[in-house]
Amino acid sequence: MTARIYQPARTATQSGQGKDKWILEYEPEVARSIDPLMGWTSSSDMKSQIRLQFDTKEEAIAYAERNGVAYRVEEPKPVTRKIMSYSDNFAPNRVVPWSH
């Protein structure tokens, strides 16, 4: 029973710099099975339904250690932003030439 502590990635509609909450999810212990009649996937692993949210990474780690849960922390990748202005589209030394 291993837990994964991570900070979820932002959706395409989010552009702010504010940090999200940290999530603790349990790794699946049993593989999912496919129902032969309906084709739905199901699992007998009840811990796969648990998803806990914490404000900080330290709170999530403390919860896992307090309850004796093995865990692994996945650090968020650094955000690389390419800052451009509108006038860069019309620069004479533009890398990609206009297609029209």
Rank of each mutant, 00 (worst) to 15 (best):
H100V: 06
L24K: 00
K77E: 11
G16I: 08
A64V: 00
G39T: 14
A62W: 10
Q53A: 13
D88G: 00
A64R: 01
N93K: 03
S48D: 10
D88T: 00
R32A: 15
V73R: 08
W98S: 08
Y63N: 04
L37K: 08
P97L: 02
P76T: 03
A31D: 15
I83K: 11
I50K: 02
Y6I: 01
V96H: 08
W40V: 15
E58H: 12
W22M: 00
H100K: 14
E29T: 13
R94S: 05
R51V: 07
E29Y: 05
E29H: 04
M38I: 15
G39F: 13
S43T: 14
I83L: 10
V96G: 03
E25K: 14
W22I: 01
M38S: 12
L37Y: 09
K77A: 06
S87C: 11
P76S: 09
A64H: 01
P92K: 01
K82I: 04
D35L: 09
K57A: 05
V79F: 00
T56G: 02
E29M: 12
Y86H: 07
S85R: 15
I5S: 01
R32C: 13
I23L: 06
K47Y: 11
I34A: 00
N67I: 03
Q17Y: 08
D55E: 15
Q14P: 00
V69P: 09
T56N: 02
A9W: 10
P78N: 07
I50G: 01
V96C: 04
P92F: 02
